[in-house]
């Protein structure tokens, strides 16, 4: 299996973080526009709660702004950003005592009301949130949306690379079957 090419220009993101460390507000805006989808998708895939995911999105970028000076470029800026998001997700988990998954019908209501989404988008996001296990969802989102390489996903999720590879393959096949069925 080949790794999906990154959706996020590593060099540009790297440069944005360096500029943020020097206090450049416009670099923060640029970084936000480049990576907000990846961060939100990951946070939503972990928390399964749109409000929590939005809060994690917010806190992640404030933390990036705070800690940009600590970032050392190793050509893996997305892994760094998503590690911050992961820690914030788990911090919420600690504060709340448990993950507060939104019930399925609440998720449905939320996404139906979101006019930014096409019918296909709605079907896809609900399939990911309702039909996949947490691990499956995080693996596909981290690869397909956040553009992380499988080995980076393995490191972030503390899983063996072979597990990530096989789960990714199986989950894509599962989604294919679900989406084909629902599209009929």
């Amino acid at each position: 299996m080949t790794d999906r090419p990154s959706n996020h220009p590593t060099g540009l993101i790297d440069k944005c973080i360096s500029s943020i460390a020097k206090g450049a507000q416009d670099a923060l805006t640029e970084l936000y526009n480049l990576t907000k989808g990846a961060v939100y998708a990951y946070a939503l895939s972990v928390t399964k709660n749109v409000q929590d995911a939005e809060d994690v999105l917010h806190d992640t970028f404030v933390t990036i702004y705070q800690k940009a000076h600590q970032y050392k470029s190793h050509s893996k800026p997305m892994a760094w950003i998503l590690t911050i998001a992961k820690n914030l997700c788990y911090q919420r988990f600690r504060q709340q005592g448990r993950f507060c998954d939104m019930p399925d019908e609440q998720l449905e209501r939320y996404f139906v009301a979101n006019t930014q989404l096409s019918a296909d988008d709605r079907l896809t996001i609900l399939a990911c949130l309702q039909k996949l296990t947490d691990q499956e969802r995080q693996i596909v989102v981290l690869h397909a949306v956040s553009g992380l390489k499988h080995r980076e996903i393995a490191k972030l999720m503390e899983l063996p690379l072979s597990t990530v590879l096989s789960k990714y393959k199986r989950t894509i096949a599962k989604l294919k079957s679900i989406l084909s069925e629902e599209n009929q």
Binding site: G37, A41, E54, H58, T124, V141
Partner: peptide, 23 residues
């Protein structure tokens, strides 16, 4: 399928840049 996942999550992402900048 990957493109559909990417499109779905990206379209669903809210814009809260203003509140981030304020903080």
């Amino acid at each position: 399928i990957e493109n559909r996942i990417q499109s779905a999550f990206t379209s669903a992402t809210p814009n809260n840049l203003q509140s981030i900048q304020a903080d």
